[in-house]
Simulated assay, not measured.
Amino acid sequence: MGQLFQLAACAEMLWRDKPIEWRAARLHEMGFEVGLWNWPDHDLTKLEKSGATFSIMNGYLRGRLTDEEGAAELLETARETAQVGKRLGVARLNLHGTGLGEGGLPVMPVEVVTGAMWLKARDTLHRVAEMAEKEDVTFTLENLNLPVDHPGVPFGRAEDTLALVSSIDHPRLRLNLDLYHAQIGEGNLIELCRTCLPWIGEVQVADVPGRMEPGTGEVNWHGIAKALKAMGYSGPVGMEAFASGDPEAALEAFRNAFTV
């Protein structure tokens, strides 16, 4: 057994009393890549000096996929974020169906996603992929759960993000397949991974319920790790989870679950 996957962890969710650059440096020391949320919250120079390798970061500041005004805002802020991503060497820049505000709630909730919204979202993501190719960056589209954390987010389910990304089928636009969200909203995680496999840019994990490290909830993460290996996946796996206790112990539990 060995570490097959490129393991990363979300810096904002661990050591929450420490400066972000300290967290990034400690994750690097422990052998993990670093996930970030919104870059304007941080001192980029200090992050550059942390020595960390950055796996993923929020790829836009404002906007949405579903209408022209929101699409223009998303593209503008995504282009700005791409420059920051290149500065930090971030591998993937993450998108959602709409901007998220306080507590992860959508800035503009959508109760019914119409056919016109689907077509506009596909057009917007086409434009994102074309921009990403010009900027030499990669964007991902993340699934979110509607019942617990993100009610009202359009294209929240993994089946929705898969439909959009696979229909565009561009190497600069991949899936951020978040299995925590998928377990709450859809389940059947191994088959979901298999269906999404050709378009996965990153897999993210946290246990259910509670959104903490593997081993604290109901999901057999080591079984999922073995299934991913059997499918031929050896890419990034990021822990986007809170620690149930000591953050270093939580990270070792994550590492153990995904050592196959």
Results as ranks from 00 to 15, higher is better:
residue 127 R to F: 01
residue 35 G to P: 13
residue 178 D to A: 11
residue 25 A to C: 06
residue 69 E to Q: 13
residue 35 G to H: 13
residue 109 P to M: 12
residue 17 D to F: 05
residue 84 V to Q: 12
residue 87 R to I: 01
residue 81 T to V: 05
residue 251 L to V: 05
residue 69 E to R: 12
residue 23 R to W: 14
residue 121 A to Q: 04
residue 150 H to F: 15
residue 207 D to P: 07
residue 76 E to F: 08
residue 175 L to G: 02
residue 233 Y to D: 02
residue 25 A to N: 10
residue 257 A to P: 05
residue 252 E to A: 08
residue 95 L to P: 04
residue 97 G to E: 05
residue 259 T to K: 03
residue 255 R to Y: 07
residue 113 V to R: 07
residue 258 F to C: 04
residue 113 V to M: 06
residue 141 L to E: 01
residue 7 L to D: 02
residue 20 I to D: 07
residue 172 R to F: 02
residue 145 N to D: 12
residue 260 V to M: 03
residue 102 E to Q: 14
residue 190 I to K: 08
residue 10 C to M: 12
residue 184 I to K: 10
residue 208 V to M: 09
residue 31 G to A: 13
residue 254 F to Y: 11
residue 168 I to C: 07
residue 96 H to E: 09
residue 207 D to V: 00
residue 8 A to L: 00
residue 35 G to S: 09
residue 177 L to N: 10
residue 27 L to K: 07
residue 134 K to E: 12
residue 113 V to I: 14
residue 126 H to P: 00
residue 175 L to Y: 01
residue 155 F to K: 02
residue 195 T to R: 14
residue 205 V to Y: 12
residue 248 E to I: 00
residue 134 K to M: 01
residue 218 E to D: 13
residue 194 R to F: 05
residue 253 A to K: 12
residue 202 E to Y: 02
residue 134 K to Q: 13
residue 93 L to A: 04
residue 173 L to G: 05
residue 223 G to S: 08
residue 46 K to H: 15
residue 75 L to P: 02
residue 59 G to T: 15
residue 71 A to C: 07
residue 95 L to H: 08
residue 246 D to F: 02
residue 55 S to V: 08
residue 183 Q to H: 13
residue 234 S to I: 07
residue 182 A to S: 14
residue 231 M to Q: 03
residue 222 H to T: 06
residue 198 P to M: 03
residue 255 R to L: 03
residue 218 E to F: 14
residue 122 R to T: 06
residue 57 M to N: 10
residue 111 E to P: 06
residue 98 T to P: 06
residue 131 M to Y: 01
residue 235 G to I: 02
residue 180 Y to N: 11
residue 64 R to N: 15
residue 199 W to H: 14
residue 36 L to R: 08
residue 235 G to V: 04
residue 12 E to D: 14
residue 216 T to K: 05
residue 152 G to F: 06
residue 157 R to H: 14
residue 116 A to C: 02
residue 254 F to I: 06
residue 135 E to C: 04
residue 226 K to S: 14
residue 254 F to K: 02
residue 39 W to R: 13
residue 256 N to A: 13
residue 122 R to H: 07
residue 214 P to N: 11
residue 181 H to C: 10
residue 34 V to K: 12
residue 157 R to W: 14
residue 195 T to L: 15
residue 135 E to K: 06
residue 201 G to F: 00
residue 10 C to T: 14
residue 105 L to S: 12
residue 2 G to K: 07
residue 170 H to N: 14
residue 3 Q to C: 00
